[in-house]
C-alpha cells in the first residue's frame, strides 16, 4: 500500500473496493475483451483480418475523413473563440449554446438531417442529381456528418481558455506595430497551443470513431463508403468475431493513445480544460 493521505477506515477500504469493482466491470473488462477476442485464434488470424483489402480501404477512408474534418474544426474553433473571447457583443451566450448544440443531438438524427437535405427524397436531391453530385451514400456525406458531430470539440476548449487570457497580450503586440495576423501567429497561438492540441485530440478520436451519424449517410458500400467502425459492424453481424475484434482493436489502440496523450497534457503542462461533456 502506498502512503495514504488520510486515515483509512474500514469504510474507506470498502468504498475503494466498490469504485474499482464498478470501473473494472464497466470499463476495464470491455477494453480487455476487445484484445482477448481479437487474439482468440492466434496472431496470424489477427494479422490476416487487418491486411484484408476491405479493412485497408476502411482504414484509408477513416483517415481521409478525419484529415478533412479535424482541420475544418480547428479553423472554426479558432475563429469562434477569437470572436467570442476577444469581443463583446449581444447574443454571445446564445451563440455559445448553439455551438454546443450538436452534443445534445442524437448521432442518428444528425445523419437524418443530411439525408433530408441531400438525399434522393431531400430538398436538394433532384438538383444534385441533375448535376450528378452525390453526397448521401458517398464520402461528402460521411465528412458532413462527422463535421456535425465533432462541431463543438475545438471551440469548446478554446473559448474559455482565450476568455481567461484576456486581450492584454494581443493589444500590446498590436500597439507595438504587429499586424493582426502576426499577433495571432506569435502571441495568441503559442498561448492557446495546449488547449488547441487537447481539443484536436478529442475531436480526432470522435471523428475516427463516429458510428451512428456515419451509419445513416454511408450506405455501407464495402470498400467504398465503409469507415473502420462500420466495417467492424459488418464483420460482427457476419459472425466473423475474430476479424471484427481485430479491426476494433485498432480503434481501441487509438483510444488508449488518446487517453495517454490526454493525461500527459493534463499533468505535464498543468493544462486545466474547462469542460465536461464530450
Amino acid at each position: 500500500m502506498s502512503a495514504s493521505a488520510y486515515r483509512k477506515s474500514g469504510a474507506a477500504h470498502a468504498l475503494i473496493l466498490i469504485a474499482l469493482a464498478f470501473i473494472s466491470l464497466f470499463l476495464l473488462l470491455p477494453l480487455i475483451t476487445v484484445f482477448a477476442q481479437a487474439l482468440a485464434k492466434g496472431f496470424d488470424a489477427y494479422r490476416t483480418a487487418l491486411v484484408e483489402p476491405d479493412a485497408i480501404a476502411a482504414i484509408k477512408l477513416t483517415l481521409t475523413v478525419a484529415a478533412i474534418s479535424v482541420p475544418l474544426n480547428v479553423v472554426f474553433g479558432i475563429a469562434a473563440a477569437w470572436s467570442i473571447a476577444k469581443f463583446d457583443f449581444p447574443g454571445k451566450s446564445v451563440l455559445v449554446t448553439f455551438i454546443d448544440l450538436p452534443f445534445s443531438v442524437s448521432p442518428v438524427v444528425a445523419g437524418l438531417v443530411y439525408v433530408l437535405l441531400f438525399g434522393m427524397q431531400g430538398w436538394l436531391g433532384p438538383w444534385l442529381r441533375e448535376y450528378d453530385i452525390q453526397i448521401i451514400f458517398a464520402v461528402p456525406g460521411i465528412v458532413l456528418a462527422t463535421v456535425f458531430v465533432t462541431f463543438p470539440f475545438v471551440a469548446r476548449e478554446l473559448i474559455p481558455l482565450m476568455a481567461e487570457q484576456g486581450r492584454d497580450d494581443e493589444e500590446a503586440a498590436l500597439s507595438l506595430g504587429a499586424s493582426g495576423f502576426q499577433t495571432f501567429l506569435r502571441v495568441t497561438l503559442p498561448n492557446i497551443r495546449w488547449g488547441l492540441l487537447y481539443g484536436v485530440l478529442l475531436c480526432n478520436a470522435r471523428a475516427m470513431g463516429e458510428f451512428g451519424a456515419v451509419s445513416v449517410v454511408s450506405g455501407h458500400l464495402r470498400g467504398l463508403t465503409n469507415t473502420v467502425p462500420l466495417h467492424v459492424e459488418i464483420l460482427y453481424n457476419e459472425y466473423n468475431f475474430v476479424a471484427a475484434f481485430a479491426v476494433a482493436s485498432l480503434l481501441a489502440m487509438l483510444a488508449l493513445l488518446t487517453l495517454v496523450l490526454k493525461s500527459i497534457l493534463e499533468r505535464r503542462f498543468d493544462y486545466q480544460h474547462g469542460s465536461v461533456g464530450h
Partner: peptide
C-alpha cells in the same frame, strides 16, 4: 479523498467512453 496503487490508471480509464468508438464498446 484516498490514495491507492493504480489510481492514475483507473483515473485515466474513466475517460475511456469519450475516446473509445461506440461500436467497439458495443461489441465488447
Amino acid at each position: 479523498r484516498y490514495e491507492f496503487p493504480g489510481k492514475r490508471i483507473f483515473d485515466a480509464l474513466i475517460d475511456l467512453p469519450f475516446a473509445l468508438p461506440t461500436a467497439v464498446a458495443g461489441i465488447a
